[in-house]
Amino acid sequence: MSTDARARRRRNRALSAVAPAALLALVTALLAALSDRSPARLALDLAWAPPSASRPFGSGDAGVDLLALVSHATVRALALAALVSLFGFLVGTPLGAAAGIFRGRFERWTLRACDLVQSFPTFLLALAVLSAVRSPSRLHIGLVFCVTAWAPFARVAAAQARVLSESQFVEAARALGLGSVAIVFVHVIPNLLGPVSVQIGTSAAGVVLGETALGFVGLGPPDGVSLGSLIEQGTLAMLRAPHVLTVGAVAVILVSGSLQLASEGVRRWVHLE
């Protein structure tokens, strides 16, 4: 195969990896931005109205336009998920890489901390921290997820770095007199980005589901623009307006599903290279 064709194939693979999430983000962002629909505008006479031509997803509690609610809530959930997983990536990767290179007590304690954080029931943690805040905002929710977001990245990075630390180019760098910190940042981190990046989609899907669960039990952002609040509305009005529940549930499946597909795409792409 010519290098040209290989490069094209690699580009295609890259596209198929990020396409689901990118498409979802683009469509919802466009919907939210281009239309003049707003989840804050209420039409009381349309409360719980089924889907119609002017409101394709129907209306919810107090006549909120469900199309506007879903698109705004999805954009915000995706933004939160992106920021939290970026934080986890930026903190966890160097930490894990350093643990895999330095070994010894540092690695043991890092992995022990990963165990502790990953075995935490995130939901309880969120409840414990949010209970100290008068009305939790999206910022507070994001901060709670950041407490645990770094651990999976650190674990994958540590496992990869352990393998890399035995490789010849790291040995060569050591022989040339490079310090451990420089080795971590110049030689190790660039070489473990592939496997670690698989984790981003998984993490983001976890954040979206976590935010939805918090919103469902009433710990969501106070403006109520969250997929969890939408599902809560839907379950309360299950007998009267089943379309609300359907819209919310399908939206959650689509968002978390496309993030997982993206992660799976990245995994295939990384492994084929």
Partner: peptide, 18 residues
């Protein structure tokens, strides 16, 4: 495995209970 509990539990409840 890929379907979140929070989306299929209310839907299943609606279908089976209502």
């Amino acid at each position: 495995a890929a379907t979140p509990l929070l989306s299929f539990a209310p839907l299943a409840t609606y279908l089976l209970a209502v």
